[in-house]
Design a protein around this nucleic acid. Structure first.
Lengths: 207, 207
DNA sequence: GTCTATAGTAAGATAGAC
DNA sequence: GTCTATCTTACTATAGAC
């Protein structure tokens, strides 16, 4: 699997050849932005480099996006969608297979989430690296808000400070797993890390 | 307890009146910087505001510090020192009281760490909020590197990807606890949060 | 939609007198 | 050590032709 989150998204769009010019151009720009952000980090990246890499012009980039922050956020959106969908689907599948224990359903989602991280290490490093546009809050507050909200209800947690803490710790745990996965190479090591992360998640969720 | 981490540090300096002018000025500047960073966040804060707040001049500020990032890092240093010392002392105390179980020693440090967070909510929000100078990596990579290294050996962990993951998750957990504490008011709620965080830490460390 | 050229601007940092 | 005035730089973002 190449590191293209876009590829995973493509299925939801029309066949490539029928894309309007606008969609193609946006894609080219986003790909360029992704590469530049990965190489230089958000803070150091500048529009000029993205323009250069895309082979287009400043004007064109600004025609399609509102600027650097907008580009970053658009990429984040794609990134997050893939994770969230994988997790959501896995939970639904598990449910249909007869799993009904909330913790096990949650684990199914977590495992799917972490599996996605296998193929997305450079992007993980980018989006979990801690820089981004102003207002792009680091870490868990941004981990699939939707996904986590679902899981909170899934786990039958109420909205108290204590259960909020628990949920945040679960999120951090998954994110740390994601980071760890991004930093090793061998598939078998990744398997071990996923298992470890899952077992920690299970022990927290079971408290 | 007022929100002055500096106060906790003062003991390590000479009596106030004997400070050289340089030390006094540095203190004034740091206090101003702290307030401005807390109010505006790192990214939005600018040297002009800090200068204004300090009642000094641009030149003077630059005479004492290398700029905005340097100021932030100096504040971070004070912040971190207080936490680390509290935790280190607590571990030593526990040990002298006859505690020898590594996990319980670790918990003693964690509890002390979280207790410090009670009085430092605005600073917590600042330093755990996710912005900072380039290179100020978010989250756990910066939680008392020293403290955590000690605790890693304390817990008898080796240097494998899996135990690194475990340590990082422990760090994140403590940091999430810190954040949670910073976001509630009542002391009794804080107690509950500390207990919850500790019990999660314990369950992870015991795995 | 795409391009080039350029305007705008904000802030970090320095020079050099006192 | 401290001050004021100023510079510089690096980008982002827009204007307006094609």
């Amino acid at each position: 699997m190449t590191e293209s989150i876009a590829a995973a998204n493509a299925a939801t769009d029309k066949p490539a050849r029928q894309w309007g010019r606008t969609q193609q151009t946006r894609r080219v720009i986003l790909d360029a932005a992704r590469d530049v952000f990965i190489e230089e980090g958000y803070a150091d990246a500048n529009i000029a480099h993205i323009v250069e890499r895309s082979g287009l012009s400043v004007g064109s980039v600004y025609h399609h996006f509102n600027g650097k922050a907008d580009l970053f956020l658009a990429l984040w959106d794609e990134f997050e969608t893939v994770y969230t969908e994988a997790a959501t689907t896995a939970v639904a599948d598990a449910r249909h297979s007869g799993v009904s224990d909330p913790i096990e359903l949650f684990i199914a989602g977590t495992r799917a989430y972490l599996e996605v991280a296998r193929g997305a290490s450079r992007l993980t490093l980018l989006f979990r690296g801690g820089d981004g546009p102003p207002g792009y809050d680091t870490l868990g507050r941004r981990v699939g808000a939707e996904w986590m909200k679902n899981n909170t209800t899934l786990l039958g947690l109420e909205d108290t400070p204590v259960s909020r803490l628990k949920v945040r710790i679960l999120i951090s745990t998954v994110v740390e797993g994601e980071r760890a996965i991004a930093s090793v190479e061998s598939p078998s090591e990744i398997d071990t890390l996923i298992d470890e992360a899952i077992s920690i998640v299970r022990s927290i969720a079971s408290l």
